[in-house]
Amino acid sequence: MLTCVEVSGLLFIIVIGAIAVLRGVGDPGRSFEFSSDGNPFGLVVSGAALAFFALVGFEDSVNMAEETHNPQRVFPRALFLGISITGVIYMLVAFIATSLVPLDT
């Protein structure tokens, strides 16, 4: 139930942000700007740490995999599908957020 609440909130942000971007508010190109001031190693490490902590949440799904009829076939599909869906949702949220909010804010 709480997952549905969280997903609906994120989809609400995506829809409202997409409407704003389509109306000309913000700068969608800003999402693809890279600063030469950033340390590439630090940026990669922080991204990897974020991905690690996001993946830790999927660890709980292992407990439920033990209760399925064919976990060798079902669990990998469910895991990759879940990671793909969450990846797309969070990339859309990041794109909308960086398009609408100035980076110095």
Rank of each mutant, 00 (worst) to 15 (best):
D60E: 05
N63F: 14
T105F: 13
P40R: 06
Y90F: 10
D60A: 13
F12M: 08
V21I: 13
S35E: 07
G42K: 10
V7L: 15
A97S: 06
H69L: 09
L10I: 00
S99E: 01
F53V: 15
G38T: 10
I19A: 11
V56G: 04
V15G: 03
F32P: 01
L103G: 03
F95D: 00
I83F: 02
E6Q: 07
G87E: 05
L22P: 00
I16S: 03
Q72A: 11
C4R: 10
F53C: 05
E33G: 01
L2D: 05
I96M: 01
V88W: 03
S46L: 14
S35D: 05
G29H: 11
P76V: 10
V101Q: 03
A94L: 15
S8C: 07
T3H: 04
T86I: 02
M64Y: 08
Q72S: 15
R73Q: 13
L10W: 01
F53I: 13
V101E: 07
P71C: 09
L2G: 04
A54L: 15
R30P: 00
G47R: 12
R23H: 10
P102F: 05
E33H: 06
F75S: 02
R30Y: 00
A54F: 06
P76S: 10
E59S: 12
E33N: 04
S31Q: 03
L43R: 10
F53L: 12
S84A: 13
A51L: 15
I83D: 01
S35G: 04
S84C: 08
V93W: 00
G24V: 14
V7R: 12
T3P: 00
A51D: 07
A18I: 09
I13L: 13
D104H: 08
M1E: 08
Q72W: 12
I13G: 00
